[in-house]
Amino acid sequence: MTPTPWVLVTGNGAYGDTAVRTDLRYDENPSSAVARALDGEVLAGHRVVGRSIDWDLDPAEALAPLMLDGEPPVAVIGCGVFSGRTTVTVERVAINVQDFQFADGGRRPAGEPIVPGGAPAYLATLPIKAMAQAMRAAGVPALISNSASTHGCNAVMYAALRIADEKGLPSRCGFVHLPDPPEHVAQMRSNGPSMSLDLQVRAVRAGIEATLAHPVDIVDPVNEWEW
Rank of each mutant, 00 (worst) to 15 (best):
V97R: 02
W6I: 03
E224T: 13
Y15M: 01
N223Y: 12
G168S: 09
L66F: 15
P193M: 07
A159S: 14
G84D: 09
R36P: 02
A60R: 14
V185K: 07
R47V: 07
Y15K: 00
S31N: 15
Q101K: 05
R25I: 09
S31F: 12
G168C: 08
S83K: 08
G45V: 06
M135D: 01
D17L: 12
D180C: 10
D17H: 11
D69P: 02
T125A: 08
R21N: 11
P120G: 09
D58C: 05
A155L: 00
G80F: 14
P179M: 14
A213W: 05
A138Y: 03
P65F: 04
A213C: 13
T89Y: 06
P65R: 05
P113T: 06
R136P: 01
A148G: 02
A155N: 03
G50C: 04
G111C: 02
P5A: 02
R107T: 13
V222A: 04
Q200C: 02
L68E: 13
L43C: 03
V7E: 05
A210W: 13
Y158W: 06
V185F: 15
V74E: 09
M1T: 07
A119V: 06
R108H: 03
V204E: 02
A110W: 04
R162H: 09
R21L: 10
V20G: 11
D217Q: 14
G105V: 09
H177C: 06
M188S: 04
A124K: 08
R136L: 04
T150Y: 02
E112K: 04
W227L: 12
N96P: 03
Q133I: 10
D39C: 08
S196P: 09
K129C: 06
S52Y: 11
E41T: 07
L126H: 09
L68N: 08
L66Y: 14
V90T: 08
Q200E: 08
F100G: 00
V204H: 03
L38K: 08
A62W: 03
P73S: 03
K129R: 14
G192Y: 12
T89E: 13
L197V: 14
V176D: 06
